[in-house]
Design a protein around this nucleic acid. Structure first.
Lengths: 347, 347
DNA sequence: ATCCTCCGTGTAATCGATTCCACGAGGAGG
DNA sequence: CCTCCTCGTGGAATCGATTACACGGAGGAT
């Protein structure tokens, strides 16, 4: 592979001039510029990004450590992150943690060793030593989707509280009273928040959320299956099940089908995170949709701000309820705008 | 960030000794080794992978340029690639080409600039200049899923011919005679092969595949929708539609639903590439399943073989038909093993 | 004519690792 | 006691870029 020296020799100038010509430095004569371009062309020269990174101490690369790539929500997030990063002149290296803290740590370490310019993380747990160390050491960092309380890092996420309230209103209107939730891991913020939002919304209707109706899942399909089976074995099974992510909803659907139960006639189902396939499941699944694309873009912008010395702010975007048929036939033809009886201030 | 010099100073030895100690070189005294470890520990030192790569001319990184990450098939492929690579001590940088040749080229170039050790590609088109150049220049490279004829690079893929024959047999047994296909881009091998396999299987039943029953798609949901609408507008619409990938099947499902058609009663549907969601669509979709995980692993092994100087062989794995309800009720309780009347030699 | 600026260019230091080569100490063998 | 190895170690070159600094020449001001 041709190096800058070869180009210099070919163009009959010094490496310094080649470098300057290539980087658009002003003080290079038109003549030199042309000869360099010609030499580059002839040799098929491409600058070695590794050498450049070593010298400049920047890789123009972002690390993205994601909880689970197989989850369509995160796939879409990853995609929008890459898009926005590319638009800003950065590459992205994705690490898939598979909801495993040890893998998450492995990726964080590897990315840091590669001297990425900044790190985007949706933490699997309360924070591995490697990650906390990086945050403390001042590596530009932004949490996306999930975050770790007490760590001073901008957070880009979506707030599902209103949408969950809309969902409970929707379920209530359809006559459901015994509502259960398949929760995510308590170690994650999204795991806890969604349960809290659900309980709070229930409270507004005078319903409570007994422990038996809180199933502990791990954001994977299998756990959705297992928890749902537990619900069905209860003396008084729930009338509606809310899965805290789309994969667990898939598992729940599996379990219900295995028992020969019909949705929504025998039991209602809703999910957090909307995905294209929910339109085509049997029945189409009512879900809380996050503005995934915007989340990814906002996260990248916040991170690049940090990298380039600007503040880099936290962003919270609202989620919204998408009503389909899995909780019962929609009551009215128009989508419920905000049917909750307990209004929040909405200026 | 602490460098090897800091470690050397802290341990009271030279940088050469630190390097040797860290890389398990034999001729380092037990004493020096201990002092280096202690210094590393105290400083929280991590070797700079960028500097190491520059010197050793290897990054221990693989590039994966994928046609479309949002396609669950490719997501799973990417995941298994990363897993196997990690097991072999490599990292993976994924580039999403989004079925766009220009983006594919962008990623290939970027990855090459970063001096990745090897490249895994599922080409979007007939081969962009950058990619062909890399192949010619001797960059270790392996094609996965799709390939480019005439380029001397190992190919890891799955052969759907038998499975497509099984599918046609299945459709025939259910009484369908007018069979159409939503094809992938003719520029891709998988796009062409699946049509060829389909036509060949049809031939075995004395059926032919008129041009009107070959819809030109691009492996994206929208094209599946569009092509399906075209089929339905025909004077004699097909009785069964075979989508050459899962996303186009999703689009087809959309279009059918929009027209108020029932699957499989009004029209049958099948897809290439099986995904978890097909179990839960309405109706569950009959599909040709590729051994995706094995494909990813085999591809990485072939590539690493090349990188490390071993031959690196092409691999072709068989796909298999998974019958569900979207083509009609399965005729027999047992899965069709190979119901095709035209037997191939199967020793 | 002299001095000062500015412009274009080249030389060389630098980034953080790996690794070739040389060197001194110590042990074995003659 | 001398020579020859072996072992552990350090000095310095090297990878391919960027960039501070120096320098020569041209042109303008005095």
């Amino acid at each position: 592979m041709a190096s800058i020296k070869d180009v210099a020799a070919e163009a009959g100038v010094s490496v310094a001039t080649v470098s300057r010509a290539l980087n658009g430095h002003p003080s290079v004569s038109e003549d030199a510029r042309r000869r360099v371009s010609a030499a580059v062309e002839r040799l098929g020269y491409r600058p070695n990004a590794v050498a450049r990174s070593l010298r400049t101490d920047q890789t123009r690369t972002l690390g993205l450590v994601i909880s689970d790539v197989m989850n369509p929500y995160f796939t879409e997030l990853a995609r929008s992150v890459e898009e926005e990063a590319r638009a800003l002149g950065y590459s992205v290296i994705i690490g898939n943690a598979d909801e495993r803290p040890d893998l998450q740590d492995h990726h964080v370490t590897t990315l840091l060793d590669r001297r990425i310019d900044g790190l985007l993380v949706s933490p699997t747990d309360g924070g591995s030593p490697g990650m906390l160390g990086a945050a403390r050491a001042g590596t530009p960092m932004v949490f996306v989707d999930r975050w770790i309380p007490g760590v001073d890092v901008p957070v880009v996420r979506s707030d599902g509280r209103d949408a969950v309230r809309d969902l409970v209103a929707h379920l209530y209107a359809l006559g459901h009273r015994r509502l259960a939730i398949i929760a995510g891991p308590a170690a994650t913020t999204t795991g806890r928040e969604r349960v809290d939002a659900f309980r709070e919304a229930l409270g507004a209707y005078g319903l409570d959320l007994p422990d038996a109706y809180i199933g502990q899942g791990d954001f994977q399909a299998d756990s959705g299956r297992r928890v749902t089976e537990g619900f069905l074995d209860l003396a008084e099974p729930p009338e509606a099940v809310f899965a805290a992510d789309n994969l667990m909803a898939l598992g729940a659907l599996d379990a219900l089908r295995a028992r020969g139960l019909r949705v929504p006639d025998d039991i209602a189902l809703a999910a957090f995170d909307d995905i294209p396939w929910f339109v085509h499941t049997d029945p189409p699944v009512t879900a809380v949709a996050q503005p995934t694309r915007e989340l990814g873009r906002a996260a990248v912008r916040a991170l690049v701000d940090r990298i380039e010395g600007r503040p880099g702010e936290s962003v919270t975007l609202p989620a919204r309820l998408v009503v389909r048929r899995s909780c019962g036939e929609p009551v009215s033809p128009e989508p419920p705008q905000s049917p909750s009886p307990v209004r929040r201030s909405t200026p």
